[in-house]
Simulated assay, not measured.
Amino acid sequence: MSEAEALAQVQDRLIERARADEAVFAAAFTGSLGTGDADRWSDVDVALGVDHPPESVAAAWTEWLATEFGILHHWDLPAPDARVIRVYLLANGVEVDVSFLPSAEYGARGPSWRSLFGPDPVREPFPAPRPYLLVGLAWHHVRHVRVCLERGRLWQAEHWLGALRTQVISLACLRLGLPTEYAKGAHLLPEEFTQALEPTLPRSLAAPEISRALSALVTVLVGELEHSAPETAAKLAPALSHWADFQGTRIPPPQR
């Protein structure tokens, strides 16, 4: 069975199960299935409105999915209130994300929603990330790349460098009205921006190479802040440039 066939089979069986489940009063596809942008690599994202305790409904669905398709692993995404968001990796390789939502939580909160049956309320959209939080995470990550370089912790430095790049991409996406989560809008960013990001990828774990990538990324970050928050850019630029100016390891790595 091809990926596309497996995906279609899972979708069909999920809808059949939802319609037959007396605990489910409504269902909708979300994510790429909700917008019509799904391809053969897409997850199956479905929201279920439930009028039984979400935990008990999730347990019953987990048992059914294990019998119907086989489950390699599943886990719950931390969620507020009474909702349960359970992520499954099925034995056929399809990822299924099911949100079990009580009536007060069920409904569209954005364009990634396609009602399948039942009531179709519209809820308050989830808030966009706050710019000051993204800016704060960015300077935090710049500083921590430098600290890790000073301590000779190169793997940790690379970790913070990647996290910093994520925040820079999110800031640009937020400014341009693009999706910010999980770099979903990154491929829609202007070419001049993404070209400037390419040198921020380290070519090795050598400290000078991570330092070079950090310097390039700080340049992109400051440029982005000059677009979206020029006063903040003026305040932060000297500190960011200082942290990016790494001349060599001052604290040797621990001896084994």
Score class of each variant (00 low, 15 high):
residue 208 P to D: 09
residue 226 E to N: 05
residue 248 G to R: 11
residue 18 A to E: 08
residue 53 P to R: 07
residue 243 W to P: 10
residue 132 Y to H: 12
residue 118 G to C: 04
residue 221 L to W: 15
residue 170 S to N: 11
residue 194 T to E: 00
residue 165 R to W: 08
residue 117 F to A: 01
residue 220 V to G: 01
residue 188 L to M: 04
residue 162 G to W: 09
residue 25 F to G: 00
residue 112 S to N: 14
residue 77 L to D: 10
residue 65 L to E: 02
residue 71 I to A: 01
residue 52 H to A: 06
residue 41 W to M: 03
residue 85 I to L: 07
residue 194 T to L: 01
residue 92 N to V: 00
residue 147 V to G: 04
residue 86 R to N: 01
residue 84 V to W: 02
residue 254 P to V: 08
residue 150 E to F: 00
residue 11 Q to I: 12
residue 63 E to L: 00
residue 57 V to W: 06
residue 184 K to D: 02
residue 80 P to S: 12
residue 81 D to P: 08
residue 108 A to T: 14
residue 101 L to R: 07
residue 177 G to Q: 13
residue 111 P to V: 13
residue 239 A to K: 07
residue 85 I to M: 12
residue 28 A to F: 12
residue 187 H to S: 05
residue 178 L to R: 01
residue 200 T to Y: 05
residue 178 L to P: 02
residue 62 T to Q: 06
residue 19 R to Y: 05
residue 4 A to R: 14
residue 53 P to C: 00
residue 250 R to I: 12
residue 90 L to S: 02
residue 160 W to Y: 13
residue 29 F to V: 03
residue 76 D to F: 09
residue 108 A to Q: 14
residue 224 E to I: 10
residue 27 A to S: 09
residue 40 R to K: 13
residue 67 T to P: 03
residue 82 A to G: 14
residue 179 P to E: 06
residue 216 A to M: 09
residue 226 E to A: 00
residue 235 K to G: 01
residue 251 I to Q: 03
residue 194 T to D: 00
residue 124 E to F: 06
residue 104 A to V: 15
residue 23 A to Q: 12
residue 21 D to R: 14
residue 104 A to E: 15
residue 179 P to N: 06
residue 101 L to S: 05
residue 55 E to I: 14
residue 137 L to N: 06
residue 196 A to I: 07
residue 247 Q to W: 13
residue 204 S to Y: 15
residue 255 Q to A: 04
residue 94 V to N: 00
residue 173 C to I: 06
residue 13 R to Y: 08
residue 178 L to G: 00
residue 106 Y to R: 02
residue 51 D to L: 04
residue 150 E to K: 01
residue 81 D to L: 15
residue 138 A to R: 13
residue 248 G to V: 10
residue 38 A to I: 09
residue 165 R to S: 04
residue 112 S to V: 07
residue 201 L to R: 15
residue 176 L to R: 10
residue 10 V to S: 04
residue 32 S to P: 15
residue 85 I to G: 09
residue 115 S to I: 03
residue 138 A to S: 15
residue 30 T to F: 06
residue 92 N to T: 03
residue 24 V to W: 00
residue 77 L to E: 13
residue 87 V to D: 08
residue 233 A to M: 11
residue 7 L to M: 05
residue 217 L to C: 02
residue 15 I to Y: 10
residue 135 V to E: 01
residue 98 V to F: 07
residue 247 Q to S: 15
residue 20 A to P: 14
residue 153 R to A: 01
residue 215 S to D: 08
residue 106 Y to F: 15
residue 81 D to A: 15
residue 163 A to N: 07
